[in-house]
């Protein structure tokens, strides 16, 4: 039982690390602000979620008791509520500030113009 939990914990932590790195790579690779939001959303949902799940299993393995589990769950729920709110506020502020999303049909035309979005 213990070893099953440990293996599950490893899978969660490694998977979480993978998705965090993917989000980090995405935020560097993607061409404009609005596509970068999608990259951060990968690391905020799946990356953070899997890492926190791994830590929850760690509390079971180490038998830290009940409170750390609840606190991890609260962090997960809290991130799940605030991260989309912050992203939405940021997107709205960006539109308000005059940043135009670069769309697919326009992207090809813009490539010749060398990128009209600042």
């Amino acid at each position: 039982m213990q070893s099953v939990l440990v293996i599950l914990e490893w899978i969660c932590l490694l998977g979480g690390s993978f998705f965090l790195l993917v989000g980090g790579i995405g935020i560097l690779r993607f061409p404009d602000l609005f596509t970068r939001f999608h990259a951060t959303s990968v690391s905020d949902t799946m990356g953070a979620g899997l890492i926190l799940t791994g830590l929850m299993i760690e509390t079971l393995v180490q038998q830290h008791g009940f409170t750390p589990l609840v606190k991890l769950l609260m962090i997960a729920v809290f991130l799940m509520i605030t991260s989309p709110s912050a992203t939405h506020a940021l997107a709205k502020a960006a539109i308000h500030g005059g940043v135009k999303p670069r769309l697919a049909d326009r992207a090809k035309a813009q490539d010749d113009e060398n990128g009209a979005d600042r």
Binding site: S41, V42, M80, I81, S83, P84, K92, P101
Partner: peptide, 23 residues
């Protein structure tokens, strides 16, 4: 709107009376 934003690949940008602008 939060569910849309939470799902990677879609992002709600502004909300009107009965539509949501999605990127």
């Amino acid at each position: 709107a939060n569910s849309i934003t939470l799902t990677p690949g879609t992002l709600s940008m502004s909300i009107d009376a009965d539509t949501i602008e999605v990127h």
